[in-house]
Simulated assay, not measured.
Amino acid sequence: MQNSVSLPGSHPTVESGRIGVLLVNLGTPDGTDYTSMRRYLKEFLTDKRVIEWPRALWYPILFGIVLNTRPGKVGKAYETIWNKERNESFLRTYTRRQAELMAASMAGHPNVVVDWAMRYGQPSIASRLEHLQKQGCERILVFPLYPQYAAATTATVNDKAFEALLKMRWQPALRTVPPYHDDPAYIDALAVSIEKHVAGLDWEPEVVLTSFHGIPKSYFDKGDPYYCQCQKTARLLRERLGWRKERLMVTFQSRFGPEEWLQPYTDKTVEKLAQDGVKRIAVINPGFVSDCLETLEEIAEQAAESFHHNGGEHFTHIPCLNDSPEGMAVLEKVVRRELAGWL
Rank of each mutant, 00 (worst) to 15 (best):
V283N: 09
A300Y: 11
Y227W: 13
Q231I: 13
D276L: 05
L174N: 10
C228N: 08
G200H: 08
P172E: 11
D267L: 14
W243F: 12
I299E: 01
K232F: 09
P172F: 05
G223R: 08
A191S: 10
L273G: 03
V177A: 12
E271L: 03
A185F: 11
L165Y: 13
K268T: 15
V192I: 11
K222M: 06
Q229F: 10
P172A: 13
L296A: 11
E246F: 00
K167G: 03
A234N: 11
S218C: 09
L241G: 00
R238V: 03
C230I: 06
T251E: 11
W261A: 05
T266L: 07
R175V: 09
Q231W: 04
P286T: 09
H181R: 04
Y226R: 13
Q275P: 05
A234C: 14
G242F: 02
L209G: 01
T269Y: 12
R235S: 09
V177C: 15
D183S: 15
Y186R: 06
Q231D: 06
L262S: 09
L209S: 00
Y226W: 06
F252D: 03
E298T: 02
A189W: 01
N285Y: 02
E259V: 05
T233Y: 14
V278W: 12
I284S: 06
S211G: 09
G287R: 08
K279M: 05
V208R: 08
V270A: 15
L296Y: 12
R244T: 08
L248I: 10
P178D: 10
A173H: 15
P264A: 07
I215Y: 05
R238T: 06
Y180I: 04
W261P: 04
L293H: 00
S218N: 10
Y227F: 15
Q231F: 08
I215C: 02
E246G: 02
R175K: 15
L241K: 03
E297V: 12
P205F: 00
D224L: 08
F252V: 02
E298L: 08
I299C: 02
E297P: 08
A191T: 10
L293C: 14
Y219F: 14
K272F: 13
H197C: 07
L237G: 01
K167P: 02
L166I: 09
Q275E: 15
